[in-house]
Simulated assay, not measured.
Amino acid sequence: MSSGVKTVERNKKARHEYFIEDTLEAGVVLTGSEVKSVKDGKVSLDGTYCSLDRKGEMLMHGAYIKPYKQASHFNHEPRRSRKLLLKQRELEKWADAASKKGYTIVPLEVYVRDGWVKVKIGLAKGKDVRDKRQTVKERESERKLRDVKHAFNR
Score class of each variant (00 low, 15 high):
Gly62Cys: 06
Met58Asn: 02
Lys87Met: 07
Val136Asn: 05
Trp94Asp: 00
Tyr18Pro: 02
Lys132Glu: 14
Gln134Ser: 05
Asp46Cys: 07
Ala98Tyr: 04
Lys137Tyr: 09
Thr31Glu: 03
Lys127Cys: 05
Ala71Asp: 01
Gly41Glu: 02
Pro67Ile: 09
Gly102Tyr: 07
Glu92Lys: 11
Ala95Asn: 10
Gly102Phe: 09
Leu91Glu: 10
Arg82Ala: 01
Ser141His: 11
Ile20Asn: 10
Thr23Gly: 12
Ile65Trp: 00
Gly27Pro: 02
Gln70Thr: 08
Gly56His: 12
Gly32Tyr: 02
Gln70Ala: 13
Arg133Val: 15
Glu17Ile: 06
Leu84Lys: 01
Leu85Ala: 04
Tyr68Leu: 02
Gly47Asp: 05
Ala151Met: 11
Lys101Phe: 05
Glu92Met: 03
Ile105Pro: 00
Leu123Asn: 04
Lys36Thr: 00
Lys36Pro: 00
Lys144Phe: 05
Ser99Phe: 08
Ser81Leu: 01
Arg139Gly: 04
Lys101Arg: 12
Asp53Val: 03
Asn75Ala: 13
Ala95Leu: 06
Tyr49Thr: 03
Ser72Asn: 13
Ser37Ala: 15
Trp94Leu: 04
Val110Thr: 04
Ser51Arg: 11
Leu86Glu: 04
Gly102Thr: 13
Asp128His: 08
Val106Asn: 13
Ser37Gly: 14
Ile121Thr: 09
Tyr103Gln: 06
Lys120Gly: 08
Gly102Leu: 11
Arg79Pro: 12
Pro78Tyr: 04
Asp53Lys: 06
Ala95Met: 07
Tyr49Met: 09
Thr31Tyr: 01
Asp96Val: 06
Glu25Gly: 14
